[in-house]
Design a protein around this nucleic acid. Structure first.
Lengths: 236, 236
DNA sequence: GGCGGTCAAGTGGTCAGACCAGTTTGCCTT
DNA sequence: AAGGCAAACTGGTCTGACCACTTGACCGCC
């Protein structure tokens, strides 16, 4: 068991999370004005520089607009936030948002297929050893959460093989979304990581430089969880 | 001519940009330690809270790691930054990065096709009027940059019709990347926005709820700029 | 009545200095 | 060699003062 560093949350982190929760939860609507920094600091019992740090980060994330001399206003995150906001939408108030999960699984399937094709085209034989290594590690692993980590490593190699900075950064954003939620998602993802033979076949197709097969195999693999989730939603 | 607000750059913005430029430009390599906040503030001739604001934002963007009591270190942005970093990669040091443009155009084509299919499946007839409105505005427009804006409005409607938060946020990140560069990109994108009939046909396919046609038309439309760019690169 | 100028009050932006909290390194003792 | 302690360094936070911008109200002039 690996011991992790215990990290105390900083004051600006607390402020950031609180305001973000209110924005995403709808309590703070687009166009609405936030209290002045001085007021926020007073109400929250913290210093103004700490409030400023949080607000500048919220601004960077596309959730608020800060203008000197005027009140800070809430933006419509659906129009202004980028993909990096995804982790916060997935896990909101401590619970997983099922609609966001569905959207992630869908995007993962559609984009994953394209990335696998690119990897077959561009990664080819040089990529195969790393993929097979990840498959071997996945095969040896019993712990469900650790299995997910091996699968993530596998897909990291695939997206590197695609040789596209856009897809690489996209992968990072998506990984950042579900990595914190892995313990909760591991059960649902188990059937997928259980199909080691599919991971193996995809590695083979990529290594052989066969985009058509790679795309199909990737779609087949990534369809498993999407279907599992759809079934779960029907049962609920 | 619309007059835009003149915005003075703040001190934390300047610090953020400078450190970000050094990280993305390679002067600050992954694993390397940044000078202490106090040192940075002294060297840059600014206050420490301003430095902190910038560093916390850089940390949020995945470019550095800040830990209390230890030095702040540089992270490998390729592994840790998300899609929201794209604007900064596209326009680095005032010049457009051709490799990033190529990657954007490719991803735009592959993802745009999927989004158009989803929009045809989910947006359907309710989406059509807005699409046709955007097409009409595009047809009336002569200014190349303004044409791009109409095209962006068109695609915003399409991605809304896809009814997926992941693709919506993705669109926001991509738009944030090329929107500041529109004046520079307008020439290259002109053949695409000149194909109003293709935009029209795509709107029709989406309105008719025909995913197959929508995907094909979207791919055809988005292939234009990709091909133009490939040609430009060969000429250079 | 409409427009322009001025002022006050509010907002965000920045700074200096002090103090708190965590990490690392060096030195001493067992 | 290992453990403990202190110092020096790091980041984290606060207070209070001042700067810069925006908005709204009021007044004077045409």
């Amino acid at each position: 068991m690996a011991l992790k560093r215990v990290s105390q949350r900083s004051v600006p982190d607390e402020v950031f999370d609180q305001v973000l929760g209110d924005v995403l939860g709808g309590e703070l609507a687009p166009g609405q004005a936030l209290p002045a920094e001085r007021k926020l600091a007073e109400v929250l019992g913290v210093s103004r520089p700490a409030v400023r740090e949080a607000l500048q980060r919220l601004s960077q994330a596309g959730l608020i607009e800060v203008r000197q001399g005027d009140t800070t206003t809430v933006r419509d995150f659906r129009r202004h936030a980028g993909l990096d906001l995804l982790p916060r939408l997935l896990l909101l108030g401590g619970t997983l948002d099922l609609k966001v999960i569905a959207s992630i699984l869908e995007a993962r399937l559609l984009v994953g297929r394209e990335v696998a094709e690119l990897a077959a085209r561009r990664g080819g034989a040089a990529l195969a050893p790393r993929l097979h290594e990840a498959v071997a590690a996945l095969r040896e692993e019993q712990d469900p959460v650790a299995q997910q980590r091996h699968a993530l490593t596998y897909w990291e190699h695939v997206v590197d093989g695609a040789d596209s900075i856009v897809f690489r950064l996209m992968f990072n954003s998506l990984r950042a979304a579900y990595e914190p939620a892995l313990p909760a998602l591991a059960t649902m993802l188990a059937p997928e990581v259980g199909r080691v033979s599919l991971y193996q076949a995809l590695a083979d197709a990529i290594g052989a430089g066969d985009p058509s097969s790679a795309g199909e195999l990737a779609a087949e693999l990534l369809s498993i969880t999407k279907a599992e989730f759809a079934k779960l939603e029907e049962d609920a």
